[in-house]
């Protein structure tokens, strides 16, 4: 049963990605001008060179041919050339995807580590000063737009001398293991910016789900029966609250990725965001398409993982 579910979802994802990529190609094709338009304007580039470049990248062939060629390359793990970096788009994008996924995962874990304990506590003792304070704080940070948050963190990082990832990434190139400490230091500012934006949503949903679970009659019955609090928490409350939490995880991935684009760009984290932005400005078509493909795949993979997890946890959905 779940194999069928998985296959359907994978097929849907493939169709989505196919439509998206084709739409991008069609749009790039429809709008006049390409990567070489800027080069044409410069007198230093001869028209022969231009023709050579056009030939090499197949910029003059019709839309269908180019798209088919791209799909063909894709099946071999080739996303096409980066026009401005004169290299494979795939080679350019893969490390960036890794950095983006790393940043998002770490930020998510940090946000959950802060939000979940606070939320369960706030649900259990809603009148305590900690619960009240956490509620207020979370509500306040929910209202602050991500972009303002990043700027604030940036300002604080500069004011207190926190290293920003731009420099850290440069140092990380000395080698993976050697670069690890500086990578970790570089993560601090972007993770902070991202997780402060994420945490309130999880806090609110978890608090609601937890207090709802607390009021369920089977939970009351379990407590009445004298089961130890630990058992009640992990066997009764947690499974009941996990379902909304996981669907929230799946649903909010998109907005987290979008927020991460801003965070990466402002703090200089070498993720997909800054590369995409650069490619947008230089009309580096294949890199743009590749970056969007990667981001979309990351979100859909997260969604799928969340759905699978829910089906595993919640027996009501399996049938």
């Amino acid at each position: 049963m779940w194999v069928h579910f998985l296959l359907t979802r994978l097929l849907q994802a493939a169709v989505t990605l196919g439509l998206l990529s084709f739409f991008c190609f069609a749009l790039f094709d429809w709008i006049p001008g390409d990567f070489l338009t800027d080069a044409e304007a410069s007198p230093a580039v001869s028209s022969a060179t231009l023709e050579g470049l056009r030939d090499r990248y197949g910029l003059d062939s019709p839309l269908g041919t180019r798209y088919a060629r791209w799909l063909d390359g894709l099946s071999r793990g080739d996303l096409g050339p980066s026009l401005s970096y004169q290299t494979d788009a795939m080679a350019l994008l893969l490390p960036r995807l890794g950095a983006t996924v790393l940043l998002n995962l770490v930020a998510l874990v940090v946000a959950l580590l802060v939000a979940l304990p606070l939320a369960t506590f706030a649900a259990q003792r809603p009148d305590s000063w900690l619960a009240q304070g956490a509620g207020r704080g979370m509500q306040a940070s929910l209202a602050i737009p991500e972009i303002v948050l990043v700027l604030l963190i940036l300002a604080m990082a500069q004011a207190y001398g926190l290293p920003l990832p731009g420099g850290a990434a440069a140092r990380a190139e000395t080698g993976w293991l050697g670069g690890l400490p500086s990578l970790a230091v570089g993560l601090v500012a972007p993770v902070l910016a991202l997780s402060v934006g994420i945490a309130p949503t999880y806090f609110r949903h978890m608090r609601a789900a937890w207090s709802e679970a607390l009021a369920e009659s089977y939970v009351l019955a379990a407590r009445q029966a004298g089961l130890p609090p630990k058992v009640v928490r992990w066997r009764y409350l947690f499974p009941a609250a996990a379902n909304p939490l996981i669907s929230l995880l799946g649903n909010s991935l998109g907005s987290t990725l979008s927020a991460s684009l801003l965070v990466e760009t402002v703090t200089g984290w070498p993720g997909l965001g800054p590369l995409l932005l650069e490619a947008v400005f230089s009309r580096d078509t294949y890199v743009v398409v590749g970056a969007v493909m990667f981001a979309a795949s990351a979100q859909m993979a997260g969604n799928l993982a969340a759905d699978l997890a829910i089906r595993r946890i919640d027996p009501r959905i399996r049938s």
Binding site: I31, G254, L272, L277, V288, A291, V292, A295, A296
Partner: peptide, 21 residues
């Protein structure tokens, strides 16, 4: 559903890239 399965800002940038800057 297709639109909602995509990260908005990324797609927005890609579409914007295709249009004159």
């Amino acid at each position: 559903e297709l639109l909602m399965a995509l990260p908005v800002l990324y797609v927005l940038l890609a579409l914007r890239a295709a249009l004159p800057i």
